[in-house]
């Protein structure tokens, strides 16, 4: 699998994604800078976390206008796989590649803590090694992770099975108490209509090795390796 990791000024999680992908696929991803205009030849493009362009205007708003995003749009339109984590998710919504927006956390705090995610769908490139309803631990670290979309959009996402992950407790109960950032319907991650673009706020790449304190997030990268191995 050939993966590209896009780096904007202020991106800071590209190495974590690279480690997770290389461990699962055996191939080191290529780091691509924000001025790049060609993403042909890649199977997967990752927009990692960080504070692209200092989060000026709105988180992800400036990065969404970068030259590379035209290439990411074209790549996604060709059926390419695009993963956006944290700031990457914000960039995908700002670029219109995923619906909705990420608002300031409801309690205004920057949240840096573990959360549990319930897997809502397993027939995708990102989740095929989990069982539906599985729960995994993932660290979150964001100030703007409060997923918002209007009710019609939320109903459409649910109807089309495009909610990827929800904030849950350790055994999978989706409750307001564990919805730390105030997201609509506990949504932590969503898919595009072809299920190939995924955005999520927490960081599965932070738990892919026992030395990191767990391997809870590893199935996502193993899933990608699985599907794209061919």
């Amino acid at each position: 699998m050939k993966a590209a990791i896009v780096v904007f000024p202020g991106t800071n999680r590209e190495r974590d994604i690279a480690i997770a992908l290389e461990q699962s696929t055996g191939i080191a991803p290529k780091i691509v800078f924000h001025r790049e205009t060609d993403l042909s030849g890649f199977d997967l493009v990752v927009l990692p976390g960080g504070f692209s362009h200092g989060d000026y205007l709105r988180s992800g708003a400036m990065a969404a206008q970068s030259p590379v995003m035209a290439a990411v749009r074209a790549f996604a339109a060709r059926g390419g796989y695009v993963l956006g984590v944290c700031n990457g998710f914000q960039i995908l919504t700002e670029a219109g590649l995923l619906p909705g927006a990420l608002l300031r956390n409801a309690d205004l705090r920057f949240l840096s803590r573990d959360c549990y995610l319930r897997v809502e769908r397993t027939d995708t490139a990102y989740t095929n090694l989990w069982q539906k309803g599985d729960v995994f631990r993932a660290p979150m670290a964001h100030g703007d992770g409060n997923y918002f979309a209007d009710a019609a959009t939320l109903d459409r996402l649910e109807g089309e099975g495009r909610v990827a992950f929800r904030y849950a407790d350790a055994v999978g109960n989706v409750t307001p108490e564990v919805n730390y950032n105030g997201s609509q319907r506990n949504i932590a991650g969503i898919f595009s209509d072809n299920l190939r673009v995924l955005g999520l706020m927490p960081h599965p790449e932070d738990l892919v090795n026992p030395l990191m304190g767990g391997i809870d997030g590893k199935p996502m990268f193993d899933s990608l390796a699985n599907l794209l191995a061919a």
């Binding site: 205007l57 709105r58 708003a61 919504t93 700002e94 619906p99 927006a101 608002l103 918002f148 979309a149």
Partner: peptide
């Protein structure tokens, strides 16, 4: 195009 995100 930029100054506002008309979703929100």
């Amino acid at each position: 195009k930029l100054l506002a995100n008309t979703v929100i």
